[in-house]
């Protein structure tokens, strides 16, 4: 499933990188971002020590004041709840507003996914979707498949309209096996 996921993601203009440590994640991000990144509180990423690694890699890590500061950040960093292999889709519980801002406003979205959390397709995702609805009374769930795109002018495909221009998926085993963990 993993190779299928990577292939599907690349087909829609996303990038995938298999890594082993959060330091590698931080280095990958630091290579592509100047200045600051948005990193909302997310237990899986905090447990792995990502904020510290990003800081060590020389990036300013913004962890609050989203609305005011999001415009300055070139990148946003999130975990992924799970992913759909056949379409290369990331599923993110984005009920927390910070998650939504992090995945919509910056030009580059870096998403950390535990490759153990892949399901075959959108039909296989339905039980999880239902579970999200059962766990929380209000939900904002996002399927993200590649970067933002448009073909509204002369049907010419153009990447990056209102949302991120780049989507990088960092596959980090052992990050979290819990489909519902933020």
């Amino acid at each position: 499933m993993l190779s299928g996921f990577i292939e599907a993601l690349q087909k829609v203009g996303g990038q995938a990188r298999e890594i082993e440590t959060v330091q590698q994640a931080a280095a990958y991000i630091a290579d592509r971002v100047k200045g600051s990144v948005l990193l909302p509180e997310q237990s899986s990423l905090d447990r792995a020590g990502l904020a510290k690694a990003l800081d060590a890699a020389g990036l300013e890590v913004i962890r609050n004041g989203w609305r005011e500061r999001s415009a300055d950040a070139e990148g946003g960093v999130t975990r992924v709840n799970f992913a759909l292999a056949d379409t290369g889709t990331l599923v993110l519980d984005s009920t927390e507003e910070a998650l939504r801002l992090t995945t919509t406003l910056p030009e580059k979205h870096f998403a950390l996914l535990d490759p153990g959390k892949l399901v075959a397709d959108s039909l296989a995702a339905v039980p999880y979707l239902r579970d999200f609805h059962a766990r929380s009374p209000r939900n904002y769930l996002a399927y993200i498949t590649g970067p933002s795109r448009t073909a509204d002018i002369e049907r010419v495909l153009t990447i990056g309209v209102h949302g991120p221009r780049e989507l990088h998926v960092l596959l980090l085993p052992g990050l979290s096996d819990d489909f519902f963990e933020i």
Partner: peptide, 18 residues
Amino acid sequence: GQLLTSYVTWIRGAVPCG
């Protein structure tokens, strides 16, 4: 002709805002 659009957004209820 897309397998899936870039975004599918599921919204239920009055989610947090500011």
